[in-house]
Design a protein around this nucleic acid. Structure first.
Length: 600
RNA sequence: GGCCCCGUAGCUCAGCAGGAUAGAGCGACCGCCUCCUAAGCGGUAGGUCAGAGGUUCGAAUCCUCUCGGGGCCGCCA
């Protein structure tokens, strides 16, 4: 993407807000960028020698793992990228580049292939060196990519009207892993939850809780249509009775509504925090929607947009296709979101003068921008897909295009039990909660499984299969690899085997080392695309290479990590599994999964 | 009617910033335990990347259209 710089948002507006980095520094060890640098050096030398035109754009020159391992360890597209601007044939450039790279001691061979690929084979001692670096470098895989930029990840943000259910669970896991991933990639990350405690739904909560209060006072509750029927409100009703006795009974709503609302909302948020804690999610900030009302903050945000000429009074066209029954044209206060890519302008104030839900949303994002974040991410359920454009428009307008907002949608979770769909009756209020899931399968399994699909793909979650111990359960498969590593390390410690520089000989060992070398690259790709599932897939691949090597040891004794009666050879051998353990632990840490010491 | 997501092996899904002969698991078939955990490993079979155009030296990937599945679409959050 040659024109990337043009659209890149400026960051100077907020760059003055220095804050101590939260991550532990980053690693410079990335074999792919090292070799890419060598390629660029060689190209520069060729230009120097008159073999290439000077000043060629090299941004698109890539050094990547080849799709087919038989092609070598790494491949570069340099010749094909440069052929046109240089006015030369790709294979000619590749040939000259190969000759230069052959002088690099790290490169065993460089061969031109296909339309102009240059396939590189890396010297064995380079791989051994990489394994050594994984062990000596505490931050292997960490990246400087984020450069300490401040990133706000808002996720879950469920209405405080009940316990978190499975859908929220996926959003929670995704958002938390994404936040950890970005931290690992060098961003300064804030995890944030927006509490929708300002709208009509918390009034409904209050009325529902009040019925439970009446119930606690010995009356029979009247859970009218539209109220929350879940029995999680029963203890709230009892607590209300404890606090107020029967003093609220037979009082009109305007007497008790506000107090009961406060009380119930607080109880719900306490429950939600516990749910999140059970899953291992800890927010940095809980941000109250209500705090935006009556404090002038909504007005300030709208005034900002008004100052940019983006607020006006007008009447919207009725939606095309299906006409609502009670449609009649009304003049409203509108945000000109179409000026920033939305399809229609959006109302921010109802015809009765009250704010729409969108107004506090705008104010909330205005506040995030004001707090100096360089980038924002919102994690929504897929059913909120319709709000993506308007939110992006709002942030673009509020930040003058300085703060990019990425909105990640998480698709549905389909529950199964032993292959059969699991029915949920939402009407009865007995939906499957986050607690149900975590209590049945554990937080680690829940988290890993939720990340075995791309966020925008539906996810099947089978309560039985996720606990199955077989290769088609990636949770188990990755954990098993780690347990094997730990098993070897325990035995090595018993035998007094120390740490020495690794030595790699067999192809299976090199395959594992190559996979380890991809880790820093994978982290950057996953962080850039905001896709933590890539970490889960990578760990599966790494585990697969490791299991393969392990099994080779079954066939060929000299490939076992522990060489009977030869502590020196064993020490050289166990560096590789130790490094695998390091990377699996680091990867699982990003996913929020605890690596196990042994399988039980 | 409009917008967003999706369509890849029999099934469930990956596919990195456009790269080479499109991958993995399951299922099917054939093999591997006197040996660090066989809860594992190796191999075989299986594809018009929904379809049609376009851009490109090169497209599953980018653009347009069509078909199919899902989601959303004014004063509910």
């Amino acid at each position: 993407m040659a024109n990337r710089g043009a659209g890149r948002p400026r960051i100077d507006a907020h760059a003055t807000r220095a804050k101590p980095r939260r991550n532990q520094g980053w690693s410079e060890m990335n074999l792919f960028t090292d070799i890419r640098a060598a390629v660029l050096d060689a190209l520069a030398a060729m230009a120097e020698a008159g073999k290439l035109p000077a000043g060629l754009e090299t941004a698109n020159v890539a050094v990547e793992p080849p799709r087919d391992a038989a092609h070598g360890d790494m491949a570069t597209n340099a010749a094909m990228v440069l052929a046109r601007p240089a006015g030369m044939k790709p294979r000619d450039i590749a040939g000259a580049l190969a000759a230069r790279l052959a002088d690099d001691p790290r490169i065993d061979s460089a061969e031109v292939a296909g339309p102009g690929f240059l396939n590189l084979r890396i010297a064995a001692d380079v791989w051994a060196g990489l394994v050594g670096a994984v062990l000596s470098d505490a931050g292997y895989g960490r990246s400087a990519m984020g450069a300490g930029r401040r990133m706000n990840v808002e996720f879950v943000s469920a209405n405080p009207t009940g316990p978190l259910h499975v859908g929220h669970t996926r959003g929670a896991v995704f958002g938390d892993a994404l936040a950890s991933l970005l931290d690992f990639a060098g961003y300064d990350v804030t995890r944030e939850y927006y509490i929708n405690d300002g709208g009509a739904q918390v009034d409904v909560l209050a009325r529902s809780a009040f019925e439970r209060y009446r119930e606690a006072c010995g009356l029979s509750p009247e859970i009218a249509e539209g109220l929350y029927p879940g029995d999680y409100l029963v203890p709230v009703g009892e607590a209300l009775k404890e606090k107020y006795g029967d003093s609220l009974l037979n009082q009109p709503e305007d007497i008790w509504l506000e107090e009961v609302r406060e009380f119930a909302t607080e109880r719900m948020m306490a429950m939600i925090r516990e749910d999140l804690a059970a899953l291992g999610v800890a927010m940095d900030v809980f941000y109250s929607e209500k705090s935006l009302y009556g404090t002038g903050r909504i007005e300030a945000a709208i005034a900002d947009l008004d100052g940019k000429g983006l607020i006006y009074r007008g009447t919207l066209e009725p939606p095309k296709g299906k006409m609502p029954e009670d449609w009649e044209p009304r003049e409203q206060t509108l945000f000109r979101s179409t000026a920033h890519g939305d399809d229609v302008d959006r109302p921010i104030m109802k015809s009765d003068g009250a704010w729409t839900y969108f107004a506090p949303d705008i104010a909330y994002h205005y506040d995030k921008v004001s707090r100096g974040f360089d980038e924002l991410i919102d994690v929504f359920g897929a059913d909120h897909g319709g709000y993506v454009k308007r939110m992006k428009a709002a942030v673009a307008a509020l930040s003058d295009n300085c703060v990019p907002l990425d909105i990640k949608l998480t698709q549905l979770v389909r529950l199964f039990k032993n292959g059969a769909p699991f029915k949920m009756s939402k009407r009865a209020g007995n939906f499957v909660t986050l607690r149900d899931v975590v209590e049945q399968v554990g937080a680690d399994v829940t988290r890993f499984v939720m990340l075995t699909r791309k966020n925008d793909a539906p996810l099947d979650f089978d309560f039985d299969k996720v606990l199955e111990q077989s290769r088609d359960n990636p949770v188990f498969y990755v954990q098993y690899a780690h347990a094997r590593v730990r098993s070897v390390m325990r035995k090595a410690a018993q035998q007094g085997i120390g740490e020495v520089a690794p030595k790699l000989e067999d192809e299976a060992e090199l395959a594992v080392a190559r996979k380890l070398a991809e880790w820093p690259r994978l982290v950057e790709i996953a962080a850039r695309t905001h896709e933590p599932h890539r970490v889960a897939f990578y760990l599966y691949e790494l585990a697969s290479e490791f299991h393969a090597l392990w099994n080779r040891g079954n066939e060929k004794a000299h490939l076992r990590f522990l060489q009977e009666g030869n502590t020196g050879a064993s020490a050289e051998k166990i560096a590789l599994p130790r490094a695998v353990g390091v990377v699996i632990s680091a990867g699982l840490a990003i996913l929020g999964v605890t690596p196990v010491e042994e399988m039980r």
